[in-house]
């Protein structure tokens, strides 16, 4: 749990501008909270979707391979059924089931990885104690900066945030 300074902006441009200025002055920007996707902002703050991509690839291909194995095993080994003298291992008809189920499981694995990467579900988070948090899902842009250790440094940070256009500044935990 870190003590942070929250700054609320009315426009995304002001938020992005503030992040640039804070970084130039070596402040640690922890996160931003926005009512819609601001392209490139998540990557700028260091988020990586690698787990989601990897989980979807592994989950989808792994499931597809397992499905194919079940088809081969059941058709060629467990229950060889002669249908018009066709080969038991009728591989040209096998891809449909692995494809359909593989796509589904890629989605399931990806969803699980998304939750894992974001730490959700977490219904009770210190962020929600901040009075400013509610507007972030509606129409305001919120910035969370690691609070400096001294009061003087915090005042300097607040001054800088105000200069970059922050409408409201407050403290909280994240």
């Amino acid at each position: 749990m870190k003590t942070v300074v929250f700054a609320e902006f009315e426009h995304e441009e002001a938020l992005v501008n503030a992040i640039g200025q804070l970084r130039e002055r070596d402040y640690h920007v922890l996160d931003a909270f926005t009512p819609y996707e601001v392209e490139g902002l998540g990557a700028l703050l260091g988020a990586s979707p690698f787990r989601v991509r990897a989980a979807m690839l592994v989950g989808g291909l792994g499931t597809a391979a397992l499905c194919w194995f079940i088809e081969w095993y059941s058709a060629a080994i467990a229950f060889p059924f002669d249908s018009g003298a066709r080969p038991h291992n009728s591989w040209p008809v096998f891809p449909l089931f692995p494809f359909e189920f593989g796509v589904l499981m890629a989605g399931v694995f990806g969803f699980a990885a998304m939750l894992w990467s974001t730490g959700l579900p977490r219904l009770n988070h210190p962020f929600f104690d901040t009075p400013l948090s509610g507007r972030a899902s509606q129409d305001r842009f919120l910035l969370a900066v690691a609070a400096p250790p001294t009061t003087r440094a915090r005042d300097a940070l607040a001054g800088l945030l105000a200069a970059t256009g922050a409408a409201t500044i407050g403290e909280g935990e994240l």
């Binding site: 996160d31 931003a32 909270f33 926005t34 009512p35 996707e37 601001v38 902002l41 998540g42 990557a43 703050l45 260091g46 988020a47 990586s48 979707p49 787990r51 989601v52 991509r53 979807m56 989808g60 449909l96 494809f99 359909e100 796509v103 890629a106 989605g107 990806g110 969803f111 990885a113 998304m114 939750l115 990467s117 974001t118 959700l120 579900p121 977490r122 219904l123 009770n124 988070h125 962020f127 929600f128 948090s133 972030a136 899902s137 919120l142």
Partner: peptide, 30 residues
Amino acid sequence: LGWRNSARHRHIYQTYYRTMAALAVPLVCS
């Protein structure tokens, strides 16, 4: 699920959502 509108979360979320969209097209046709 306790969604906080975090930009870091949204970056991961959007990657997942767009990948799902890309998978949905061949799925729906199939």
